[in-house]
Nucleic acid binder design. Structure first.
Length: 559
RNA sequence: UGGGGUAUCGCCAAGCUGGCAAGGCAGCUGGUUUUGGUCCAGCCAUUCGGAGGUUCGAAUCCUUCUACCCCAGCCA
């Protein structure tokens, strides 16, 4: 949907509407978040669908905050939502709206309904309302206040607005059908009394419209053609349509699609909030969170997210997307964009015994083999270097083509080295590895046609910079953390290894790495400079590992 | 017999005017490679939740059964 190129059932419906000249060929959507939390990857699906659809059809998409419940909504959230939508790459131009913009209009709509004898003020307590509503299988009972006169309803409703009644003492209800199989049609509440301050209208109102009474009418006022929402609103559609019909106003078409579910994570505001409030993560923007702010900090790109939304499609079946698909999307994007750089995450020292002591030379290293225009850099090489601990094995298995006693490997961009000796500590662990290099192989090429099986990465010990690496992994150990047995909570399945902090060595060209910059640490993973990073204390977040087929081979050889 | 939905490869998902199952992810085989990365080539549903039926022919139409999801907030 980033390009609006893929088709889906929503587009099929729009195509029909266009063919039938419904809405005169217009396409106008909206993204309607409630500002009561941070946006997550599931919202990205909706954003891409709504803005993407508008783009595809040359239409418009509004950003509208559904702020009808003052007790839950805050300005902090509207700010973060706007930031996230922009970051994702979408623009609402001058069409920023709030349901609260329409409070007066909505009030007048309610008055109209009362005048038509289609709404009444009900004084049943919340408990009684529930009781009278009936159950899923049994019809409800009519409220004793259902047949008040229009005049009395008008007076009472006006007094509600004036603040003459206590919170919860009265509500305005639609008069529809207490025996409907669809509970939403059993005289739904339109307005409740809530004397709390609204983030935008302050204290000018003490009655607030319910979602059902605000959403469709807001869509109508804005001239929305296709009101796309998630599946759970499917049984609200008859009500959505009932209001527009009774109010005799322009009617958009509501279309429902399946919300996103992702393996190994949770995507409900309630649970995400619980993770933040329970300090299981550092905040809404913790790089392990599926929030857009978390994902952004982690190092995901908007392009990768948009591509992901294109890839997963849009349908009505309740599905759970494999987290691997998201990871595929970032790798694909970062492979093209990220500078390659060398970093050793788990160092072991190698001394090149025949290399002159105290000497340092600069070697050429290309920044991205996928894109020559990204140029090259100079990296320092010296007598002592660090290599990755698992790039050396004293007793290598078959097919291990890295460094081992007597073996020769290529140090990427540098020289061929051969392992001569292992120096151990008193406890038997390896202290350092002594190697010799072949001066004729500078740059990593040999003129005699000799072949080496492996190429490994390294950093010059004296030149390397120490840095902090935050290695993130899946937040949960369970594919579906929402599915918990009796007595357990979703937080019981948090992955204790979701964050590992290490001190690593990186090549000194990273000295001026800027916050938000993404790199590929050769042969390891993509990393992104964290917001907490400083010049003298670099911090890198692991975005995602590179694919590693060696672990597969290893598993097969040594089961 | 509450109402509303959904069922196509391990995971997403096309297909819906009936004509003989796209694509992606994952996986598997090979090839290229100064990243065991990328890239390239090949493989991966005789079958479309089950059972009947209509038809020369059905994932697509009809009947019926089954499974799963959503709804009893003065939340959205």
């Amino acid at each position: 949907m980033g390009e609006g190129s893929l088709n889906n059932f929503v587009h099929t419906m729009i195509d029909e509407d266009i063919k039938n000249n419904k809405y005169q060929g217009r396409v106008h959507t909206r993204f309607p978040p409630e500002p009561n939390g941070y946006l997550h990857i599931g919202h990205a699906k909706s954003i891409c669908l709504n803005f993407g659809t508008a783009k595809k059809y040359g239409g418009l998409c509004n950003l509208r905050f559904d702020d009808t419940n003052p007790s839950k909504e805050e300005t902090e959230f509207v700010d973060s939502i706007m930031e996230d939508v922009k970051w994702l790459g979408f623009d609402w131009d001058d069409r920023l709206f709030y349901a609260s913009d329409y409070f007066e209009q909505l009030y007048q709509f309610a008055v109209k309904l009362i005048q038509k004898g289609k709404a009444y003020v009900c004084e049943l307590s919340p408990e009684k309302v529930r009781e009278y509503r009936g159950t899923l299988k049994e019809p409800g009972k009519e409220s004793p206040f259902r047949n008040r006169s229009i005049e009395e309803n008008l007076t009472l409703f006006e007094k509600m607005r004036k603040g003459e009644f206590q919170d919860g003492s009265k509500v305005l209800r639609a008069k529809i059908d207490m025996s409907s199989g669809n509970l939403n049609m059993r005289d739904p509440v339109l307005y409740r009394i809530q004397k709390s301050e609204h983030h935008r209208t302050g204290n000018t109102w003490c009655i607030y419209p319910m979602y059902d009474f605000a959403h469709g009418q807001s869509d109508s006022i804005e001239g929305i053609t296709h009101s796309v929402c998630t599946l759970e609103f499917e049984d609200h559609r008859p009500l959505y349509e009932w209001f527009l019909k009774e109010l005799e106003i322009y009617a958009p078409r509501q279309i429902e699609f399946a919300r996103l579910n992702l393996t190994y994570t949770v995507l409900s505001k309630r649970k995400l909030r619980a993770l933040v409030e329970g300090k299981f993560v550092s905040g809404w923007n913790d790089p392990r969170m599926p929030t857009l702010s978390g994902i952004r900090r982690r190092g995901y790109t908007p392009e990768a997210i948009r591509n992901f939304c294109d890839m997963i499609g849009v349908s009505k079946s309740n599905s759970t997307v494999d987290f691997a698909m998201l990871e595929y999307c970032v790798r694909e994007d970062l492979n093209k964009k990220a500078h390659r750089v060398m970093a050793v995450l788990d160092p072991i020292k190698v001394v090149i015994t025949n290399y002159p002591e105290g000497q340092t030379e600069l070697l050429d290293a290309e920044n991205n083999p996928e894109d020559a225009s990204m140029g090259s850099r100079k990296i320092p090489f010296s007598r002592e270097i660090y290599i990755e601990r698992d790039d050396f094995m004293e007793n290598p298995p078959k097919k291990f083509h890295r460094l081992f006693p007597g073996g020769e490997v290529r140090l990427k961009f540098a020289y061929y080295i051969q392992c001569q000796e292992i120096v151990k500590n008193a406890d038997g662990s390896i202290k350092e590895i002594l190697c010799t290099y072949d001066p004729e192989t500078k740059g990593g090429w040999s003129s005699d046609g000799r072949k080496v099986k492996g190429t490994i990465h390294w950093v010059s010990a004296v030149d390397a910079l120490k840095a902090e690496a935050r290695l993130y992994d899946l937040l949960f150990t369970k594919q579906n953390p929402d599915e918990v047995e009796e007595g357990k909570e979703f937080t019981d399945f948090l992955n204790p290894q979701s964050l590992e902090i290490k001190t690593i060595y990186v090549e000194n060209t990273l000295k001026n790495a800027e916050i938000g910059q993404r790199y590929q640490f050769e042969r390891k993973a993509y990393f992104c400079v964290d917001v907490e990073s400083r010049k003298d204390a670099l911090v890198f977040n692991r975005v995602v590992n590179l694919k590693d087929s060696w672990i597969k081979i290893q598993g097969k050889e040594n089961p």
